[in-house]
Amino acid sequence: MAVILVRHGRSTANTASILAGRTPGVGLDDTGRKQAAELPARLGDRGAELVAVARSPLQRCAETVAPLVAEWDLPEIVVDDLAEVDYGQWTNRPLAELAKEPLWQTVQRQPSAAVFPGGEAMAAMAARAVGAIRDLDARHGGEDGSRLWVACTHGDIIKAVIADAMGLHLDGFQRIVVEPASLSVVRYHPRQTVVHTVNNTAKLSLPAPGAELAGTAVGGATGTDDERGA
């Protein structure tokens, strides 16, 4: 029925306020490991409906989904296009130091124009991330978005995917908050893409199997048992 976008749990780089980027060997800290262990319970009985787990090739994502894959013996797909932004010369530098760089303001206010020195353009990141998620959903989400699957990746990747699903220009994606170990849910449907959840850090609630996400209710959700809104 949807893709559950999982940001990796808190990493050692998050704790140190370092921009790890694609640096190998950056794993979860103690809090992140606890968040990973809690992930299956946060999905509840809906976890048994998962058909696949796709993830970034980086260690912190592998560690985040490991309990989920083990709980339901799920196929695990490593997808290079779900990797973290290539921050180039910004990699492994303290965030407090980077905030003083002129490019920082571009990243915050006009990310579509930002190109990291020796690294990747934010626009290129968004294109490959959105392309990867939509391609994976075409293969694992079912023709009408009827199947449930997980993509574990990084904050900016998830924000770009949510912005695309909302029809939001990349320059507005910094308005979206995606915390470590948060869950966001998007359903791609032939008629309409629906953003169901953003930045959930508790137990995830999803509509009952078969509920229609593609036709949102006029006036908003009603809260009734026969709800068909998102």
Rank of each mutant, 00 (worst) to 15 (best):
67 P>C: 08
97 E>K: 07
113 A>R: 12
86 D>M: 06
103 L>E: 03
72 W>D: 03
112 S>K: 11
79 V>N: 03
87 Y>P: 04
63 E>H: 02
104 W>I: 11
77 I>A: 01
81 D>C: 08
98 L>I: 12
97 E>S: 12
79 V>F: 00
71 E>V: 10
103 L>T: 04
85 V>T: 12
75 P>M: 05
72 W>G: 01
97 E>R: 06
63 E>L: 03
68 L>S: 02
110 Q>A: 15
58 L>R: 02
80 D>F: 11
57 P>K: 02
82 L>F: 01
71 E>N: 13
58 L>V: 10
101 E>I: 05
109 R>M: 14
116 F>A: 14
100 K>G: 15
113 A>T: 11
106 T>A: 11
65 V>L: 06
82 L>Y: 00
93 R>L: 12
93 R>F: 05
84 E>G: 02
87 Y>Q: 08
88 G>A: 13
111 P>S: 10
89 Q>V: 09
97 E>L: 12
114 A>G: 03
73 D>W: 12
103 L>K: 04
72 W>S: 03
57 P>Q: 07
94 P>S: 09
70 A>R: 10
100 K>Y: 11
83 A>R: 06
98 L>Y: 05
60 R>F: 05
73 D>N: 15
90 W>G: 00
60 R>Q: 08
114 A>E: 02
63 E>W: 01
63 E>I: 03
59 Q>G: 06
85 V>K: 00
84 E>V: 04
102 P>A: 12
83 A>T: 07
108 Q>E: 14
76 E>T: 04
95 L>A: 06
76 E>N: 12
62 A>N: 04
96 A>E: 13
118 G>S: 06
86 D>K: 08
112 S>T: 07
64 T>S: 10
59 Q>T: 15
63 E>R: 01
111 P>D: 09
94 P>V: 09
98 L>E: 01
88 G>F: 08
68 L>F: 07
84 E>M: 07
79 V>Y: 01
83 A>W: 00
76 E>L: 10
71 E>S: 14
100 K>H: 15
80 D>L: 10
102 P>G: 13
73 D>Q: 14
57 P>G: 09
70 A>W: 07
57 P>T: 06
84 E>C: 05
94 P>K: 12
116 F>W: 08
